[in-house]
């Protein structure tokens, strides 16, 4: 069915809701506040007054304090902040591997805090993609590029045609690398291939932890360009990074310090 739709129009534009219209207009950066309009339809994820406390034998550490944010589809949200500011904690919660100590976290409308481990895992499998900082960590080292994407799709429970995969890789500039294994790719190519794997099957949210930290400048630019291109997929990108280039391409910014929101737009 996806193939049928793909044959109808360009692969970037397939939304049937407001996001589709916005994307079709080609001005994703101007998307209205999804919370104001209809968060249920447009927000891939939202965190509301979330707190996270880590307990050790001797003390308690507040990693997140009253953090609220909506992560809309088709948008890139950068999370910035110094080390220890709570970025990783927030990413873990959004990635459904951890639960908040307080507040509400909605991923595709489901409250992560109320889900059990299996349910969170199922939600992650269907709706969340996570990109590790090190490009090679996002890939299975014995599979060629095309199989990497196919595996990601199948793990999400979706069969994606070869043409579809090739088209996605072509958009990311990897069409000449279809049969190459990760070790035959550059770091930038690896990270772009990881991005392809992340968006295949249309998850609600892609979480990337410092995706450009391991790359040189040119490769980082190409990866960010890929994110920008993939934004039109209707996926919410949440990127944790110190890289000002990431902040520059982001539609929204959430800056944390000592677990508190110091800037949000």
């Amino acid at each position: 069915m996806a193939d049928d739709r793909a044959s109808d129009s360009s692969w970037e534009f397939h939304w049937g809701d407001s996001s589709f219209d916005e994307a079709a207009d080609g001005v994703p950066g101007d998307a209205p506040s999804v919370l104001v309009t209809d968060p249920a339809r447009t927000a891939a994820a939202s965190v509301i007054d979330v707190g996270k406390v880590y307990r050790t034998a001797t003390e308690e550490v507040n990693a997140l304090l009253d953090v609220s944010k909506v992560f809309p589809r088709g948008r890139i949200t950068a999370i910035a902040g110094p080390s220890g500011s709570g970025k990783s904690s927030l990413l873990r919660i959004l990635a459904c591997v951890d639960r908040p100590s307080s507040g509400t976290v909605l991923v595709e409308g489901r409250d992560v805090a109320t889900l059990r481990v299996r349910q969170r895992r199922a939600l992650r499998r269907a709706s969340v993609s996570y990109m590790f900082q090190n490009p090679i960590d996002n890939l299975v080292d014995y599979l060629p590029a095309r199989e990497q994407v196919r595996l990601a799709s199948r793990l999400r429970g979706i069969r994606t045609g070869a043409e579809e995969i090739e088209r996605l890789l072509r958009v990311l500039g990897l069409d000449h690398r279809l049969r190459h294994t990760p070790h035959q790719l550059s770091g930038g190519e690896q990270q772009r291939l990881a991005a392809a794997c992340a968006v295949i099957g249309h998850p609600a949210i892609v979480i990337a932890d410092e995706p450009t930290a391991e790359l040189d400048s040119a490769a980082a630019d190409r990866v960010l360009e890929a994110f920008r291109d993939l934004r039109a997929e209707g996926v919410a990108f949440v990127i944790s990074s110190h890289d000002p280039r990431v902040v520059a391409i982001a539609d929204h910014l959430l800056r944390l310090d000592h677990g508190r929101v110091v800037e949000s737009n």
Binding site: M1, A2, D3, R5, A6, W11, H14, W15, G16, D17, A126, S153, R156, G157, I158, R159, T160, E164, R167, L168, V199, I200, G201, H202, E233, G234
Partner: peptide, 13 residues
């Protein structure tokens, strides 16, 4: 509708 999010990048669950 479940089909409202269909993309060329895969079928929805």
């Amino acid at each position: 509708p479940a089909t409202s999010q269909k993309l060329t990048t895969g079928q929805p669950a």
